[in-house]
Structure formats: structure tokens, C-alpha cells
């Protein structure tokens, strides 16, 4: 049975299946974990722990990468 939870990614609401870890979520989003960084509820998530971090209802995620930028 799939329970759906609601979370916020980069400011937008998203529905995902309960019990997913961060690594699975990034794969579902087609994002290369090596090229992004993730903040969860204002805390940096270490890349080495993506598989251990279970996404919970109401989590607020920021997923960022490097883009061209000067100042």
C-alpha cells in the first residue's frame, strides 16, 4: 500500500511515496547526486548519508547546483 506524503522542494509542494530516502528521491527526479547539494529543513545533508535520510512529511528540501555567476 502506497502512502503519499507532501513535501516542499525548492519552494514548491510535491507529493511523494512515504518511506523514500533522499538517494531514491534524487533518482526519481533524474538528478545526479554528484552534481547537486541538498539542504533539508535548513540543515545541510552530507552526500555520504543520502541513502540513510528518509524523507518525512512536511520536509522542506532545497536542491541546488552551480550555475554561471559573477556577482
Amino acid at each position: 500500500m502506497n502512502i503519499v506524503i507532501e513535501i516542499t522542494i525548492n519552494g514548491d509542494p510535491h507529493k511523494i511515496a512515504k518511506g523514500q530516502n533522499l538517494d531514491m528521491l534524487l533518482q526519481d527526479l533524474n538528478l545526479d547526486p554528484a552534481k547537486v547539494a541538498v539542504e533539508r529543513n535548513l540543515e545541510i545533508v552530507s552526500k555520504t548519508t543520502y541513502q540513510d535520510v528518509i524523507i518525512m512529511a512536511d520536509d522542506r528540501l532545497e536542491i541546488v547546483h552551480f550555475i554561471g555567476g559573477g556577482k
Partner: peptide, 10 residues
């Protein structure tokens, strides 16, 4: 090179 950190367009 300087780079900016921005939200990924998911």
C-alpha cells in the same frame, strides 16, 4: 572562476 549556487530546475 566564480560560480553561483542556485536551485535546480527539477
Amino acid at each position: 572562476v566564480t560560480v553561483a549556487t542556485r536551485r535546480v530546475n527539477i
